[in-house]
Design a protein around this nucleic acid. Structure first.
Lengths: 119, 119
DNA sequence: TTATTATTTGCTTTTAAGTGTATATTTTAA
DNA sequence: TTAAAATATACACTTAAAAGCAAATAATAA
């Protein structure tokens, strides 16, 4: 098992358990046998790209999440990079962030409307 | 050929040509036949993870580079559109939004760390 | 404990990547 | 246009993922 595969399998298991799914559930969502899923998660086999693609859909994460190592992404990531991470958040948190953005944007338009009314 | 594989092959070719290597050179650095490399770059076969790992070393790029789409296809569009609008906001509001995003993201990693500790 | 669920593992078959070698085709430069 | 380099393809063979099915173990709850 190569370093990358070890990383992938660790991330797969971590993300699945984080989302509270059983192997059976995820395997069903992927349309693959649960046994094969187990092998994959334990590094007995090297998952193919299309398998990872199915998994990323089943777990609702970006496929690049499987390749990420460590927690080295705290400090000053450019905004666009953070946007990518938003997609990996839970739905309610995603919506909370979008709401904040909506408020800020609509407030901006409100200010603009008022100032143009004054003129 | 799935969407992801199409993305990967496009990135592979782009990065190789960007670095000015021939297929023969990269294949040699990877230790694989040139013919197989050609198939891979043309999406005739789906490269395995270990093949991508060899390639990332040969091209001296992160393996996640192969999964990146130039125009951020994996970010949901309406959100991406809002991001553009964020740039038009006042500085203090921009920073407030970034702070909220930071909190949500770090909270996510906190949860993941805890759940893997529990396990 | 027992019963139930979750996970691991074994086996065979199928499918597809990868090798090795060689040749065909396209691209590029002289 | 011709030669050389780069790329695409062909074929038989090997290797490994994935399917399909089943059984064994591990973990959890009643």
């Amino acid at each position: 098992m190569t370093k990358t595969v070890k990383l992938i399998t660790a991330n797969i298991q971590r993300l699945r358990e984080l989302k509270g799914f059983s192997q059976k559930e995820v395997a069903a969502a992927m349309g693959i046998p649960q046994g094969q899923y187990s092998r994959m998660e334990n590094g007995k086999v090297e998952p193919s790209i299309s398998t990872l693609e199915k998994l990323s859909i089943a777990l609702d994460v970006s496929i690049t999440e499987f390749f990420k190592s460590g927690i080295d992404m705290d400090v000053n990531i450019p905004l666009l990079e953070k946007i990518r991470l938003i997609d990996t958040l839970d739905k309610d948190e995603r919506q909370a962030i979008e709401t904040v953005i909506d408020i800020a944007i609509s407030r901006k338009y409100l200010k603009e409307s008022i100032s143009s009314l004054i003129k």
